[in-house]
Design a protein around this nucleic acid. Sequence first.
DNA 1: CCGGAAGTGTAGCCTATGCTACAAATGTGT
DNA 2: ACACATTTGTAGCATAGGCTACACTTCCGG
Lengths: 138, 138
Amino acid sequence: MPLTAADRHRRTRRDHAGETAEDYAEAVAVILDQHGVCRLVDLAERFGVSHVTANRVVARLEREGLIDTAPYQPIELTPAGRRLARAAQRRHQTVLDFLRALGVSERTANIDAEGIEHHVSPETLRAFAAFAESHGQV
Amino acid sequence: MPLTAADRHRRTRRDHAGETAEDYAEAVAVILDQHGVCRLVDLAERFGVSHVTANRVVARLEREGLIDTAPYQPIELTPAGRRLARAAQRRHQTVLDFLRALGVSERTANIDAEGIEHHVSPETLRAFAAFAESHGQV
DNA sequence: CCGGAAGTGTAGCCTATGCTACAAATGTGT
DNA sequence: ACACATTTGTAGCATAGGCTACACTTCCGG
Ligand SMILES: [Mn+2]
Ligand SMILES: [Mn+2]
Ligand SMILES: [Mn+2]
Ligand SMILES: [Mn+2]
């Protein structure tokens, strides 16, 4: 089948649909790792949004089986959430390492990786990893 | 200033806010180039959305001064729209060439470039262009 | 010239995310 | 124990972008 522009754009929209879940799962994992507990305010601060926005996202991810919470209680990840967080963290790290290996400045690499990561398919991720592997400065 | 996670995510959200404008401007330019005129249905088909969705996007971009239209008439670009289209096309092409130069398959490169392009800052774009320049197969 | 196809517009619905303002719960320190 | 700061929840608003169903305009061919 030929690849149409519509196919490309549908895929990009699909990437965006899963983006919040990936970033939030990753964030919860990071915060748990650093602080032991993850509170709503931690997420709000990390994403630069109001606690209301963070609250609604958490509620959605709970519906989707990624997050485990009770009212006024800290936030935890379900097994599915942990798997997603792991995958997101690894992919994020690979994209970041790749941009650094390409010679992009630390600041820019950090910024761009946050958006790029969600659009990198497995094949491209492998190419990124291979390049970082062979060109990365220790 | 240290770069916080909130800064990264705010930047990604900003990228997404401008994404539709960039892709639609690019699409109008491409369609005008290929068909002479750009109709709403052409945009709907290109993006894989209903004509209603395309209609609303066009209305917004007209409010924003990028598109020129009259009811039931073909769609044109304002000077600002043409400038945006040009920039978007060039950046898209650079990202695509870069992925190909990296060894990513044609199909995957085409898909991933559609999302990645909007998160590539000027510095990273320069790095992409330099790599494609030196590693591209003719 | 006129009837139907194609294109466009509009009403009304949905979800996802953003916000402020205000209310309620939690928990901490004295 | 209880006041106060912190945290969380909720009400209500906005925009962007998806959709279907239905109405209207344009345009073209016979
Ligand atoms: Mn991200
Ligand atoms: Mn994106
Ligand atoms: Mn594009
Ligand atoms: Mn795009």
